[in-house]
Simulated assay, not measured.
Amino acid sequence: MDKNKVYEELKVLRTNAYVPYSKFRVACIIYLKNGKKIEGVNVENAAYNPTICGERTAVSQLVTQGYNKDDVELLALYTDSEGVGSPCGTCRQTLIELLNPDQKIWIFNINEFSGEYTLEYFLPLSFTKTDLG
């Protein structure tokens, strides 16, 4: 997968974010092994609590469309930051529930590619369904 193409797609998608309060846009594209893409952006709300991040918007669509963690090739994330804009805690917990711990994640900021990570890198010692035993 071409990082420059992914970055350009994320920059276009970010314009769909609804961020009248923070002005901080987040875009997420989940690339599936079958070549399809699932997109998500952050959608804010004046009450803040109903706000949903781009990652959770995309992964909700993944589930809604009948796909699962084994269908995912790459999760690409863009944030309006100058450094590494990693997923928030709520997103990390949601992603660890619905994706594989070794899921490859590419992160981009306003200027460039920030790095390649795995989901378990962002949430070591995560709380999962096995902990509910």
Rank of each mutant, 00 (worst) to 15 (best):
N45E: 13
Y121V: 00
V19Q: 08
G83P: 00
N100A: 08
Y7A: 12
K33R: 14
M1F: 14
T128V: 12
A47I: 08
D131C: 12
R56P: 05
E120Y: 02
D102H: 05
V6P: 00
R92F: 02
N42P: 10
Q65L: 15
T57S: 09
G115A: 00
A47H: 14
A76W: 03
L95Y: 06
V59T: 13
R25V: 03
C28W: 00
C53F: 08
G85T: 00
E73H: 13
G83W: 10
V12D: 12
D80M: 00
L99Y: 02
R92G: 07
T130I: 14
F24K: 14
L119M: 06
N100F: 00
Y117E: 04
L132K: 15
N109T: 05
K129A: 13
N34K: 05
R92L: 04
D2S: 15
E82V: 12
N4T: 14
T64Q: 15
L99W: 00
K11R: 15
C91Q: 02
E116V: 10
C28Q: 02
S126V: 05
I96R: 01
G35T: 05
D2V: 10
G133S: 12
G133Y: 03
R14H: 01
S86H: 09
G133T: 12
G66D: 11
D2E: 15
L125G: 10
E44Y: 08
T57K: 01
A58F: 09
E120H: 04
E82G: 15
P124R: 08
E112R: 14
L77K: 01
P50K: 07
G89A: 06
Y48T: 11
E9K: 14
I105L: 11
D71C: 01
N109M: 13
A76L: 02
T118H: 01
L75R: 01
K5F: 14
A47R: 11
D71T: 01
V19H: 04
K129Q: 14
Y121T: 08
T130N: 15
K36I: 01
E55I: 09
S22Y: 02
N68V: 03
N42T: 11
M1Y: 14
L74Y: 07
L32H: 03
P87V: 04
Y7I: 07
L98C: 07
L74I: 09
Y117V: 08
T15Y: 09
Q93E: 13
D80Y: 01
V12E: 15
L132E: 15
T130M: 09
E8T: 12
V26K: 05
C28E: 05
P87S: 04
M1A: 11
L74R: 04
L13V: 01
R14F: 00
A27C: 06
T90I: 12
E39H: 12
L32N: 02
V19W: 03
A27P: 04
T130W: 13
G35P: 11
I29P: 00
Y48Q: 09
L123C: 03
V43M: 13
Q103P: 03
N109I: 08
Y48H: 12
V12L: 14
E39L: 09
L99E: 02
G85Y: 03
